[in-house]
């Protein structure tokens, strides 16, 4: 319910942004078009009609999936975006996995042994991960690993393999080597976040009675950490990470630009530079939809993980 409201409001905002703040003729029509073309498009888009009708027209077209044609590529903007989605998703998912794979063990360790040197190093690094700008870290990575050491490539996706007709990098060794740096760069912030969350969670949960009871039951330390502790930590971590997935997609604009990763983040930046406005509008609508979907999925996941929430749902 609220989600559809958000989509509606965002469509209104984008519409206002394009039609009221800027001149829609400039925004939506190729500046090199002649007068006849301009007139034709104006009547096509209904720009000569009153504003509320225009908005209806915009929504109607958007629902049909028609968000205009790219000036640069001459293709429907939506199609262009959709073509670039897999690369971005691959990058974002890889970053998400890295955040879990690196973040949770480091965070749990720091939570279990808060006074150890290793824990303090982990926490200091995570503070850096929070405050360093992503693009600068990306540049440094390129300088160290690609330029100075020459061990990892700095741009592009490398060899790809088609999965269901969609090119993917993670299935080839070359593709993986291209994926590693951008994914790490993108996930650095999230790794720090997961470290903090799981450390805080661990420190809170190890003092819970049920952990002590688990020890009193004679369970092995491994089982206590992996089952009793982990399952409780996973709830906040998964919730936050899920919500942050949209952030990963948004921040991929930066990482993709630094590493020349051909996803929709790079596409939007290029489109902004090229004043390719239909693509920009299409991107915005897609991203808003993505965010709304993510919020829904996280709600569902949350209830799967936490039996207490599940029960409340049954009652209501």
């Amino acid at each position: 319910m609220q989600s559809s409201l958000v989509v509606l409001v965002m469509s209104l905002l984008v519409f206002i942004g394009v039609n009221i703040v800027g001149n829609p003729v400039d925004m939506l029509i190729n500046p090199e078009a002649d007068q006849e073309e301009i007139d034709r498009v104006i009547s096509d888009l209904g720009l000569d009609r009153p504003v509320h009708e225009q908005y209806g027209y915009f929504v109607f077209n958007a629902l049909k999936g028609d968000l205009g044609k790219s000036f640069i590529y001459g293709e429907p903007a939506l199609k262009l975006i959709v073509q670039h989605i897999p690369a971005t998703l691959e990058l974002a998912v890889a970053a998400l996995l890295m955040a879990i794979v690196f973040g949770i063990p480091l965070g749990v360790y720091a939570g279990l042994k808060p006074d150890s040197k290793t824990a303090k190093t982990i926490m200091a690094t995570s503070i850096l991960g929070f405050s360093l700008p992503t693009f600068w870290v990306g540049i440094m990575m390129i300088m160290v690993f690609a330029v100075q050491l020459g061990v990892l490539p700095s741009t592009g996706r490398g060899d790809t393999v088609d999965v269901l007709g969609v090119p993917m990098s993670f299935l080839t060794l070359d593709g993986l080597s291209h994926l590693f740096l951008p994914a790490l760069n993108l996930s650095l912030f999230k790794i720090s976040l997961v470290i903090r969350l799981s450390r805080a969670g661990t420190r809170e949960i190890v003092h819970m009675d049920y952990i002590k009871f688990a020890r009193a039951k004679g369970l092995r330390q491994g089982r206590i950490v992996m089952v009793h502790l982990m399952k409780n930590i996973m709830i906040p971590v998964v919730t936050v990470l899920g919500l942050e997935f949209g952030g990963l997609v948004a921040f991929s604009t930066v990482t993709e630009t630094v590493f020349a990763w051909p996803g929709m983040g790079k596409l939007i930046i290029d489109s902004i530079h090229n004043l390719d406005r239909p693509v920009v509008v299409a991107y915005l609508m897609i991203v808003v939809l993505l965010f709304v979907t993510i919020n829904l999925v996280v709600d569902v996941l949350y209830s799967v993980l936490d039996p207490r929430v599940r029960l409340q749902d049954q009652k209501s």
Binding site: V14, V18, V21, G247, A250, F251, T253, V254, V280
Partner: peptide, 12 residues
């Protein structure tokens, strides 16, 4: 995310 909102505004 902040960057997205800023990007949208600056694009417009």
């Amino acid at each position: 995310p902040a960057i997205l909102v800023a990007l949208i505004l600056l694009a417009i």
